[in-house]
């Protein structure tokens, strides 16, 4: 009798342990996603400053600048994992074009506040990349747990679904948005 009780108790504790671990992992994924959001917003906030700084030097690149502004507006309003990924892809392409054009303006490259912005921008690109890496790592961890025996029994009975990776849709974004100067 006591043996059965002990077995049941151990089973319950085990169940609770795995359940809690799954919940913790799911929350971690949520946190990771919000971190990506924070960094994307950081980039959106940097772009007006960038345009402001660059504008004075680049009167002849109106189109390039307008492309960036339009892409930013699109990215700010995008929602959902897939929608965001796509909009950010466009923004990356537009920014890359702008930064490639900068090469032709030595005065701009020597500008101190532009250099500061550039550092912030390339750091933000890195932050987005690392936030995505952490997000995908967390999803990988969670999905493994959901699939692997015995935690899969608890996961399926408690309705834990596999999460989706933050994949890159746009080919332009696949090449990590390199900021070259």
């Amino acid at each position: 009798m006591i043996i059965i009780l002990v077995i049941v108790l151990v089973a319950i504790l085990y169940f609770v342990g795995i359940y809690n671990a799954l919940v913790r992992m799911r929350n971690q994924i949520k946190n990771a996603w919000s971190q990506i959001d924070v960094q994307l917003k950081r980039r959106h906030d940097l772009i007006p400053n960038l345009i402001e700084t660059v504008k004075g030097y680049m009167q002849h690149e109106r189109e390039t600048l307008e492309n960036v502004i339009a892409a930013r507006a699109k990215a700010v309003n995008a929602s959902g994992v897939a929608g965001k990924a796509e909009a950010e892809g466009y923004l990356n392409t537009a920014l890359d074009k702008l930064l490639a054009v900068v090469e032709n303006y030595p005065n701009l490259k020597a500008d101190q506040s532009f250099a500061t912005l550039q550092e912030e921008l390339s750091s933000t690109e890195n932050r987005i990349a690392f936030a995505r890496q952490y997000f995908n790592d967390s999803v990988l961890n969670f999905n493994n747990r959901v699939e692997i025996f015995p935690s899969n029994l608890i996961a399926s009975s408690m309705n834990f679904q596999k999460e989706v990776y933050f994949e890159i849709k746009d080919a332009a974004e696949k090449e990590a948005p390199q900021v070259k100067f």
């Binding site: 932050r127 936030a131 890496q133």
Partner: peptide
């Protein structure tokens, strides 16, 4: 933060990668 932006930025980047808030 302003003078050593690269160092501070790299620390922030790696903290994100490690999930340190």
């Amino acid at each position: 933060k302003d003078k050593f932006s690269k160092l501070n930025n790299v620390i922030a980047e790696m903290s994100i990668a490690a999930g340190i808030p």
